[in-house]
Write a protein that binds this DNA or RNA. Structure first.
Length: 293
DNA sequence: CACTTGACCTGTCCGC
DNA sequence: TGCGGACAGGTCAAGT
Protein backbone atom coordinates (compact mmCIF):
# COMPACT_ATOMS: atom_id res chain seq x y z
CA UNK A 1 0.00 0.00 0.00
CA UNK A 2 1.43 3.21 1.13
CA UNK A 3 3.97 4.73 -1.18
CA UNK A 4 5.42 8.20 -0.74
CA UNK A 5 2.22 10.24 -1.30
CA UNK A 6 0.18 8.13 1.10
CA UNK A 7 2.77 8.33 3.87
CA UNK A 8 3.16 12.07 3.23
CA UNK A 9 -0.62 12.50 3.49
CA UNK A 10 -0.68 10.67 6.82
CA UNK A 11 2.20 12.86 8.03
CA UNK A 12 0.37 16.06 7.09
CA UNK A 13 -2.74 14.79 8.87
CA UNK A 14 -0.97 13.77 12.06
CA UNK A 15 0.76 17.15 12.14
CA UNK A 16 -2.65 18.74 12.66
CA UNK A 17 -3.78 16.19 15.21
CA UNK A 18 -1.14 14.96 17.64
CA UNK A 19 1.67 17.51 18.02
CA UNK A 20 2.13 18.35 21.70
CA UNK A 21 0.18 15.34 23.00
CA UNK A 22 1.99 12.90 25.22
CA UNK A 23 1.77 9.14 25.10
CA UNK A 24 -0.02 7.76 28.11
CA UNK A 25 -0.09 4.09 27.19
CA UNK A 26 0.65 1.70 24.35
CA UNK A 27 -1.47 -1.42 23.89
CA UNK A 28 0.29 -4.02 21.77
CA UNK A 29 -2.17 -6.60 20.47
CA UNK A 30 0.21 -8.24 18.00
CA UNK A 31 3.74 -8.39 19.32
CA UNK A 32 5.35 -8.99 15.96
CA UNK A 33 4.09 -5.60 14.81
CA UNK A 34 6.04 -3.78 17.55
CA UNK A 35 8.94 -5.62 19.18
CA UNK A 36 9.86 -3.33 22.03
CA UNK A 37 11.94 -3.68 25.16
CA UNK A 38 9.75 -2.95 28.17
CA UNK A 39 12.38 -0.66 29.70
CA UNK A 40 12.73 1.41 26.56
CA UNK A 41 8.96 1.72 26.41
CA UNK A 42 8.68 2.93 30.01
CA UNK A 43 11.71 5.22 29.90
CA UNK A 44 11.54 6.80 26.44
CA UNK A 45 7.97 6.45 25.18
CA UNK A 46 5.44 6.59 28.00
CA UNK A 47 4.80 10.10 29.33
CA UNK A 48 6.78 11.66 26.51
CA UNK A 49 5.53 14.43 24.29
CA UNK A 50 5.27 14.45 20.48
CA UNK A 51 7.50 17.16 19.04
CA UNK A 52 6.89 16.63 15.35
CA UNK A 53 6.18 14.12 12.59
CA UNK A 54 8.51 13.43 9.68
CA UNK A 55 8.82 11.18 6.67
CA UNK A 56 11.71 9.61 4.79
CA UNK A 57 10.95 7.34 1.84
CA UNK A 58 7.92 5.23 2.82
CA UNK A 59 8.72 5.50 6.53
CA UNK A 60 6.91 7.77 8.97
CA UNK A 61 8.51 9.05 12.16
CA UNK A 62 6.84 10.39 15.29
CA UNK A 63 9.61 12.25 17.11
CA UNK A 64 9.37 12.50 20.90
CA UNK A 65 10.91 14.82 23.48
CA UNK A 66 12.86 11.85 24.88
CA UNK A 67 15.10 11.92 21.78
CA UNK A 68 13.50 8.68 20.71
CA UNK A 69 11.33 8.29 17.64
CA UNK A 70 8.61 5.85 16.67
CA UNK A 71 9.33 4.64 13.14
CA UNK A 72 6.48 3.10 11.13
CA UNK A 73 6.56 1.05 7.92
CA UNK A 74 3.03 0.39 6.70
CA UNK A 75 4.04 -2.14 4.01
CA UNK A 76 0.93 -3.28 2.06
CA UNK A 77 -2.03 -2.78 4.38
CA UNK A 78 -0.91 -0.61 7.30
CA UNK A 79 -3.07 2.28 8.52
CA UNK A 80 -2.48 4.96 11.14
CA UNK A 81 -5.77 6.47 12.23
CA UNK A 82 -6.36 9.03 14.96
CA UNK A 83 -9.64 8.85 16.85
CA UNK A 84 -10.81 11.20 19.55
CA UNK A 85 -13.94 9.49 20.82
CA UNK A 86 -14.99 12.53 22.81
CA UNK A 87 -15.06 14.63 19.67
CA UNK A 88 -16.00 11.93 17.24
CA UNK A 89 -18.77 13.96 15.63
CA UNK A 90 -17.16 17.34 16.16
CA UNK A 91 -15.43 19.63 13.71
CA UNK A 92 -12.65 17.99 11.77
CA UNK A 93 -13.81 14.49 12.59
CA UNK A 94 -15.79 13.15 9.66
CA UNK A 95 -18.42 10.67 10.72
CA UNK A 96 -16.96 7.95 8.56
CA UNK A 97 -17.69 4.33 9.13
CA UNK A 98 -14.10 3.19 9.64
CA UNK A 99 -13.44 5.47 12.58
CA UNK A 100 -16.60 4.37 14.33
CA UNK A 101 -15.57 0.73 14.14
CA UNK A 102 -12.08 1.04 15.61
CA UNK A 103 -10.55 -0.94 17.14
CA UNK A 104 -11.33 -3.83 14.81
CA UNK A 105 -9.82 -7.24 14.11
CA UNK A 106 -6.88 -5.79 12.20
CA UNK A 107 -5.88 -3.40 15.01
CA UNK A 108 -2.34 -4.38 16.02
CA UNK A 109 -1.20 -1.51 18.27
CA UNK A 110 -3.04 1.34 20.00
CA UNK A 111 -1.36 4.50 21.30
CA UNK A 112 -3.36 6.31 23.97
CA UNK A 113 -2.70 10.01 24.52
CA UNK A 114 -3.08 12.26 27.54
CA UNK A 115 -6.29 13.72 26.04
CA UNK A 116 -7.71 10.16 25.89
CA UNK A 117 -7.61 10.15 22.10
CA UNK A 118 -6.09 7.13 20.39
CA UNK A 119 -3.89 6.38 17.41
CA UNK A 120 -4.67 3.01 15.86
CA UNK A 121 -2.06 1.05 13.96
CA UNK A 122 -4.16 -1.29 11.84
CA UNK A 123 -2.58 -3.81 9.51
CA UNK A 124 -4.59 -6.59 7.93
CA UNK A 125 -1.60 -8.57 6.62
CA UNK A 126 0.77 -7.96 9.56
CA UNK A 127 3.71 -7.08 7.29
CA UNK A 128 4.06 -3.59 8.71
CA UNK A 129 6.16 -2.75 11.74
CA UNK A 130 6.91 -0.13 14.36
CA UNK A 131 10.34 0.44 15.91
CA UNK A 132 11.55 2.78 18.64
CA UNK A 133 14.87 4.26 17.52
CA UNK A 134 16.99 7.08 18.99
CA UNK A 135 16.20 10.14 16.86
CA UNK A 136 19.88 10.88 16.34
CA UNK A 137 20.26 7.63 14.37
CA UNK A 138 17.58 8.50 11.82
CA UNK A 139 20.02 9.93 9.29
CA UNK A 140 21.09 9.07 5.76
CA UNK A 141 24.43 7.92 7.16
CA UNK A 142 22.79 5.55 9.58
CA UNK A 143 19.22 4.22 9.58
CA UNK A 144 18.61 5.36 5.98
CA UNK A 145 21.96 4.37 4.52
CA UNK A 146 20.27 1.97 2.08
CA UNK A 147 17.77 4.53 0.82
CA UNK A 148 18.15 6.57 -2.34
CA UNK A 149 17.26 10.26 -2.57
CA UNK A 150 13.84 11.76 -1.97
CA UNK A 151 12.21 12.40 -5.35
CA UNK A 152 10.72 15.72 -4.20
CA UNK A 153 13.84 17.01 -2.46
CA UNK A 154 15.23 20.23 -3.92
CA UNK A 155 18.63 18.54 -4.21
CA UNK A 156 17.20 15.81 -6.42
CA UNK A 157 17.64 16.44 -10.14
CA UNK A 158 17.49 14.65 -13.47
CA UNK A 159 21.30 14.41 -13.31
CA UNK A 160 21.10 12.62 -9.97
CA UNK A 161 18.47 10.25 -11.35
CA UNK A 162 20.57 9.62 -14.47
CA UNK A 163 23.66 8.85 -12.47
CA UNK A 164 21.92 6.54 -10.02
CA UNK A 165 20.06 4.64 -12.73
CA UNK A 166 23.21 4.18 -14.79
CA UNK A 167 24.86 2.29 -11.95
CA UNK A 168 22.41 -0.52 -12.81
CA UNK A 169 22.64 -0.51 -16.63
CA UNK A 170 21.16 -3.95 -17.28
CA UNK A 171 18.20 -3.60 -14.92
CA UNK A 172 14.72 -3.12 -16.33
CA UNK A 173 13.43 0.37 -15.60
CA UNK A 174 10.40 -1.00 -13.75
CA UNK A 175 12.67 -2.86 -11.33
CA UNK A 176 15.08 0.07 -11.03
CA UNK A 177 12.33 2.49 -9.99
CA UNK A 178 10.96 0.04 -7.45
CA UNK A 179 14.44 -0.31 -5.95
CA UNK A 180 14.48 1.93 -2.88
CA UNK A 181 18.27 2.09 -2.95
CA UNK A 182 18.23 3.89 -6.31
CA UNK A 183 15.34 6.24 -5.56
CA UNK A 184 13.13 6.03 -2.50
CA UNK A 185 9.40 6.35 -2.16
CA UNK A 186 7.98 4.94 -5.39
CA UNK A 187 5.96 1.73 -5.42
CA UNK A 188 3.94 -0.17 -7.97
CA UNK A 189 1.28 2.48 -8.59
CA UNK A 190 3.53 5.48 -9.16
CA UNK A 191 6.13 3.54 -11.17
CA UNK A 192 3.45 2.47 -13.66
CA UNK A 193 1.97 5.96 -13.78
CA UNK A 194 5.38 7.64 -14.23
CA UNK A 195 6.44 5.28 -17.02
CA UNK A 196 3.18 5.87 -18.88
CA UNK A 197 3.56 9.63 -18.62
CA UNK A 198 7.15 9.33 -19.89
CA UNK A 199 6.18 6.95 -22.74
CA UNK A 200 8.73 4.41 -21.51
CA UNK A 201 8.12 0.66 -21.73
CA UNK A 202 8.57 -0.98 -18.32
CA UNK A 203 10.80 -3.70 -19.84
CA UNK A 204 13.33 -1.18 -21.20
CA UNK A 205 16.73 -1.68 -19.62
CA UNK A 206 18.37 1.36 -18.07
CA UNK A 207 21.13 1.44 -20.71
CA UNK A 208 18.51 1.64 -23.48
CA UNK A 209 17.18 4.93 -22.11
CA UNK A 210 18.27 8.24 -23.60
CA UNK A 211 19.19 11.20 -21.46
CA UNK A 212 16.04 12.84 -22.76
CA UNK A 213 14.00 9.85 -21.55
CA UNK A 214 15.44 10.30 -18.08
CA UNK A 215 14.74 14.03 -17.99
CA UNK A 216 11.13 13.30 -18.96
CA UNK A 217 10.94 10.54 -16.37
CA UNK A 218 12.30 12.85 -13.68
CA UNK A 219 9.64 15.47 -14.43
CA UNK A 220 6.89 12.85 -14.61
CA UNK A 221 7.79 11.39 -11.23
CA UNK A 222 7.70 14.81 -9.58
CA UNK A 223 4.44 15.76 -11.30
CA UNK A 224 2.67 12.58 -10.36
CA UNK A 225 3.84 12.51 -6.76
CA UNK A 226 2.85 16.14 -6.23
CA UNK A 227 -0.53 15.57 -7.82
CA UNK A 228 -1.15 12.51 -5.67
CA UNK A 229 -0.19 14.31 -2.45
CA UNK A 230 -2.59 17.10 -3.43
CA UNK A 231 -5.32 14.49 -3.96
CA UNK A 232 -4.65 12.70 -0.67
CA UNK A 233 -2.90 9.65 -2.16
CA UNK A 234 -4.28 6.48 -3.72
CA UNK A 235 -6.77 4.10 -2.16
CA UNK A 236 -6.65 0.78 -3.97
CA UNK A 237 -7.94 -1.34 -1.11
CA UNK A 238 -6.94 -0.48 2.44
CA UNK A 239 -5.29 2.90 2.44
CA UNK A 240 -6.82 5.69 4.52
CA UNK A 241 -5.33 8.89 5.90
CA UNK A 242 -4.88 9.86 9.56
CA UNK A 243 -8.62 10.55 9.89
CA UNK A 244 -9.78 7.45 8.08
CA UNK A 245 -10.49 9.11 4.72
CA UNK A 246 -9.69 7.51 1.37
CA UNK A 247 -7.35 9.06 -1.20
CA UNK A 248 -8.54 10.36 -4.57
CA UNK A 249 -5.57 9.89 -6.90
CA UNK A 250 -6.79 6.68 -8.57
CA UNK A 251 -9.78 8.55 -10.00
CA UNK A 252 -7.22 10.32 -12.17
CA UNK A 253 -4.85 7.42 -12.83
CA UNK A 254 -3.98 6.78 -16.46
CA UNK A 255 -2.93 3.13 -16.39
CA UNK A 256 -2.97 1.66 -12.88
CA UNK A 257 -5.92 -0.78 -12.62
CA UNK A 258 -7.01 0.34 -16.10
CA UNK A 259 -6.39 -2.93 -17.94
CA UNK A 260 -8.59 -3.32 -21.04
CA UNK A 261 -9.55 0.34 -20.94
CA UNK A 262 -8.47 2.83 -23.61
CA UNK A 263 -5.18 4.67 -23.17
CA UNK A 264 -6.00 8.35 -22.52
CA UNK A 265 -3.40 9.33 -25.13
CA UNK A 266 -4.00 6.96 -28.03
CA UNK A 267 -7.05 4.84 -27.12
CA UNK A 268 -5.16 1.55 -27.47
CA UNK A 269 -6.30 -0.83 -24.75
CA UNK A 270 -4.11 -0.80 -21.66
CA UNK A 271 -2.36 -4.10 -20.95
CA UNK A 272 -1.59 -5.66 -17.59
CA UNK A 273 1.20 -8.19 -17.37
CA UNK A 274 3.55 -9.55 -14.77
CA UNK A 275 6.92 -7.83 -15.01
CA UNK A 276 9.68 -8.30 -12.42
CA UNK A 277 7.13 -10.14 -10.33
CA UNK A 278 4.63 -7.29 -10.16
CA UNK A 279 1.38 -6.60 -11.96
CA UNK A 280 2.38 -3.93 -14.48
CA UNK A 281 0.06 -1.66 -16.44
CA UNK A 282 1.12 0.06 -19.65
CA UNK A 283 0.01 1.12 -23.12
CA UNK A 284 1.48 -1.27 -25.72
CA UNK A 285 1.27 1.43 -28.38
CA UNK A 286 2.71 4.59 -26.87
CA UNK A 287 5.11 2.80 -24.52
CA UNK A 288 7.07 0.82 -27.10
CA UNK A 289 10.69 -0.15 -26.49
CA UNK A 290 12.90 2.13 -28.54
CA UNK A 291 16.51 1.08 -28.95
CA UNK A 292 18.89 4.00 -29.27
CA UNK A 293 20.74 4.35 -32.55
C1' DC B 1 25.29 -8.94 -11.29
C1' DA B 2 20.37 -9.55 -12.45
C1' DC B 3 16.53 -12.18 -12.03
C1' DT B 4 13.26 -15.59 -9.91
C1' DT B 5 10.98 -17.64 -6.20
C1' DG B 6 9.37 -18.09 -1.77
C1' DA B 7 8.34 -16.09 2.73
C1' DC B 8 5.94 -13.09 5.62
C1' DC B 9 0.02 -12.78 6.44
C1' DT B 10 -5.03 -11.96 5.65
C1' DG B 11 -8.75 -11.23 2.69
C1' DT B 12 -11.23 -11.08 -1.67
C1' DC B 13 -12.47 -12.45 -6.08
C1' DC B 14 -13.04 -15.65 -9.92
C1' DG B 15 -13.80 -20.01 -12.12
C1' DC B 16 -15.45 -24.58 -11.71
C1' DT C 1 -22.67 -22.54 -1.74
C1' DG C 2 -18.11 -24.46 -1.49
C1' DC C 3 -13.32 -24.98 -2.64
C1' DG C 4 -8.94 -23.99 -4.66
C1' DG C 5 -6.00 -20.84 -6.70
C1' DA C 6 -4.51 -16.32 -7.99
C1' DC C 7 -3.72 -11.93 -6.57
C1' DA C 8 -2.97 -7.56 -3.57
C1' DG C 9 0.28 -0.04 -2.60
C1' DG C 10 6.36 -4.02 0.11
C1' DT C 11 10.66 -5.95 1.19
C1' DC C 12 13.90 -9.78 2.42
C1' DA C 13 16.71 -13.92 1.79
C1' DA C 14 18.20 -17.61 -0.87
C1' DG C 15 19.10 -19.89 -5.07
C1' DT C 16 20.06 -19.87 -10.33
Amino acid sequence: MPELPEVETIKLGLNELIIGLSIQDIIIKNHKSFLIDENIKELFLINHKILNISRRAKLLMINLDSDYSLVFHLKMTGQLVYVDHHHRFGAGHPNNSLINKLPDKSTRVVFIFNNNAQLFFNDQRKFGWIKAIPTSLLTDRDFFKYHGPEPLDSMFSSEVLYKRLLSHPKTKIKAALLNQQILSGLGNIYVDESLWMSKINPLTTVNQLTKKNIITLYKSIQNILNKSIYLGGSTDRNYVDAQGNKGNYLKFANVFRKENQPCPRCSTLIVKQKIVGRGTHFCPNCQKIKVEK
